[in-house]
Design a protein around this nucleic acid. Structure first.
Lengths: 155, 155
DNA sequence: TCGTTCGCTGTACAGAATGCCCAGTGGATT
DNA sequence: AATCCACTGGGCATTCTGTACAGCGAACGA
């Protein structure tokens, strides 16, 4: 489960050129093809690599507005709220967090006006007491993993 | 830029079986290979598909703790803070949001104790006035895009 | 120190996929 | 009616994949 330097380099390579094949990767890394294959298999069965899903940009899909909503939940309604939020396509992500028994979710919308509709749909549910929303203006650091991989591979 | 039904189906298919090839995808979708190729090219140059980067699980890398930190920034220090946070590997994501000229960032750490170290490193910077952190306990809805794709493709 | 295990190398081969090209067809646009 | 466009279905040379196998050196336990 520990990640060594070769694993790290492989992950970096895959992050930069995702459509690369095993053979080409082995050439770039200067190792045998079988090695890359074995490492890849191991990383995947380890769960380090969850998959290679296409990275879809919501903005390009017509949802350029992103927001984070903090939800305050009525006691014991957690499961119902989870189920409810799962049915809203604009809810991209949902976490339960420490604090006031709260949840944090990431939303997208077609416009600021549309965000109101989304929020209404999200909070229009009995178990949700209150919601506070922060609209994202900039995204100086888009979701990234490589720096962490580098750090993890230097052990 | 609008996504039609075939695009939607293709994205779903890629999300479920990422390592699928163009030929196999065309078989599943019941269209010609050239069509899938053309759609894929279009989706990528559209920016709808940003890439196919490996989906790495921080937990499997030894960082099982996730947290969201809301940062209050000193006026005019935004750029410095961005630059600072970029250098911290445990900062997976950073957004500037409406509100109190704040930022929201996603952090990971090796443990709850380690989270303290990460937070210290994050807020140990002059431009940051205050930080409030919410530790993630559960993740009922992991980052997803397919429901949104489905909705977008039904226009 | 010996024997074993493990990961990596280098090679091989059949089957499959890719990149690229082209002619034909049907629907929509002008 | 002419044109454009996306899709189809086919072909071809090149490349990659999946799989297998023998050899080699390092690490490890007996």
């Amino acid at each position: 489960m520990a990640i060594d330097h070769l694993d790290g380099a492989l992950l970096e390579l895959l992050a930069e050129e995702p459509r690369i094949g095993v053979l080409e990767a082995s050439r770039r890394l200067g190792v045998a093809r079988g090695t890359v294959q074995a490492r890849l298999d191991r990383l995947q069965s380890n769960g380090v690599i969850r998959g290679f899903g296409p990275d879809v940009d919501p903005a390009a899909l017509g949802y350029p507005v992103t927001a984070f909503a903090t939800l305050e939940i009525k006691q014991g309604q957690g499961n119902d709220v989870r189920a409810h939020l799962t049915t809203v396509p604009e809810v991209l992500e949902l976490h339960t967090t420490t604090g006031h028994g709260d949840m944090l979710c990431r939303l997208v919308a077609r416009s600021n006006a549309d965000l109101q509709r989304v929020i209404d749909r999200v909070v229009g549910f009995d178990g949700i007491v209150r919601a506070s929303t922060a609209i994202v203006m900039e995204n100086p650091v888009p979701l990234r993993i490589i720096p962490l991989v580098k750090q993890a591979s230097e052990d």
